[in-house]
Design a binder for these strands. Sequence first.
DNA 1: TCTGTTTGTGTAATCGTGTACACAATCATG
DNA 2: CATGATTGTGTACACGATTACACAAACAGA
Lengths: 329, 329
Amino acid sequence: MNKRRITSKELAKLAGVSSATISRAFSPDSRIGSATRDRILSVAREHGYQPNAIARSLNNQRSRLVALVVNAIGNPCEAEEQQLLVHRLQARQLLPIILCCADHDDRLQLMRLASTYQVDHVVVFSDMVSMQDAVDIFHTTKPIIVSFEPLENENVSNIRIDGSAAADEIIEKIVKDGKKRFAYLSGTKSSWIDKLRRKWFADALAKRGLAIEAEAFGDYTYDSGFKEAVLLLHRSKVDAIICGNDVMAIGARDAARRMLGKNTPDDIAIVGQDGIAMAAWDCNDLTTLSLDHVAFIDAVVDLIERHDADLPGPHSITLTCNARWGSTA
Amino acid sequence: MNKRRITSKELAKLAGVSSATISRAFSPDSRIGSATRDRILSVAREHGYQPNAIARSLNNQRSRLVALVVNAIGNPCEAEEQQLLVHRLQARQLLPIILCCADHDDRLQLMRLASTYQVDHVVVFSDMVSMQDAVDIFHTTKPIIVSFEPLENENVSNIRIDGSAAADEIIEKIVKDGKKRFAYLSGTKSSWIDKLRRKWFADALAKRGLAIEAEAFGDYTYDSGFKEAVLLLHRSKVDAIICGNDVMAIGARDAARRMLGKNTPDDIAIVGQDGIAMAAWDCNDLTTLSLDHVAFIDAVVDLIERHDADLPGPHSITLTCNARWGSTA
DNA sequence: TCTGTTTGTGTAATCGTGTACACAATCATG
DNA sequence: CATGATTGTGTACACGATTACACAAACAGA
């Protein structure tokens, strides 16, 4: 119990070889007698020896650590993607370090801390950090950065999301249903992705001679969706609310029903964004502009693998969203 | 761009000192002239130098990494606690490595991988790994393990959860409302925590001359809650379902309403467990046996800090749950 | 048999820090 | 002013692996 881990040198003594041979026994393709290897692996198992990844990282300049910069873990919009990505990383023997930006006072400090661990890759989900900051902090440690936000930089790969067609489809249907006055409920005041999403819908409305009449700002949570929807519906006569994400949409739907007695889709149309699993639950049944999470994470993993294999240059992948129909619009 | 990180030796040359002095400049309390330190820090900032945490870890035998063994990231029951814990760890300059067990074929392999990174602490949320396995794998690297499951071991601290009183309260109310036939919908077939939770309710029923009449097994997801509830309600005439977690409870509630036209709480009582934020949403309004997440994570952090400061021995903390009332029971 | 290749292993340097030890310079104290 | 404590810095080694290089043994082909 509680005994210190055995080192390769100690194991070498036990197996009657040099520490170099120990190392070779654990490197798949290296010149070593198969008899020796078997003996070493057996002795290693017996003593619970495993090569120290920290020492190994120091030597090869590869940590096999990946920093995941996220807003929050609990937030379902990201959680499903995080889950998927973590799974994929683990299958490739890469370990994720989570950097949770939501309630951390000094996000840059946090990223600097992670950068000292020589992470091999960085994936930025969060829209709370400026991409330029991420590059500045991590460029000294050479990892590639995968991010939503397009940034021309030789170290940054991007996943671009295009939801304009899906937004157009959704607006088409809502307008056909007779709705005329639209509100947009943003998730943040300053996020790049939020502005992009808003533009998809604004463009679709403009095409039909309509516009976003009212606007509100929440923080991607149910409570903020609920609260802002109440305020919105009290101060303006909108009959459709496009929300920055699904969770806020659920909050807005509840607010309309509970506080103003308005039901979807007859009295008011409500649209979410993300396409989280919960949106499809029977009690929610949300109409939402949905991103294919699997395709999204496939793209991220693809970029990471490309970089892991030292293939040249950063890349850019564009994914399109699609409409997922529920009973709220 | 993309230039290799500067090392302490290179910085030493630039600042006209030895690499040892560089190291001292970054160690808060070490003998160094304040003028020298200021100069070094300034040159360091200029060149983007930060001490390499990997090398430092190798040297001090402290990685400041914490392994978080969880079932899934997306699962809301854990997500809130994870979020809180990650926040606390980050505030202490500890970085979390996530080990996601849910869909990983070889959990032990995964834990072994993490153990090679010499993590300082391990927190086991998941009930999918046997505690004994965790101890076997991590004991060679000396970290303390914080876990739900009580295990007598000098390296394991426990957080025990007691929900018996709250379960009694809840059963009391449901029985008073006239319900007589109870079903229990488990989250897993084999989990230790699931059996414990079930026992709280079974005991409360036994006290009143009642028992769990029907039983089903899901996997903590909405879909499984929905599906199992349908089967359960078709094969037996229960009028109350206690669910292994909140998400399944929401699924069960939807199933009862949608597939059998039974509403809560009049036709059927439905109870969740965990007390996740979503349970309190207006559209759910779940009665649930709730754990105080903040207190829980406080306890975890307390144990970690104690161990981080090299205070003696593992400890055990017991927390009690309380009933949170909604309109489903 | 002689030479040239292949195979298996050990030696020693390296990765980037932290720190024990040594030593010079500065300071306090009588 | 002499002496001892304190302060600031450099030198050298340790942390635990990987790997270039060297070298002996085994083996191939003529």
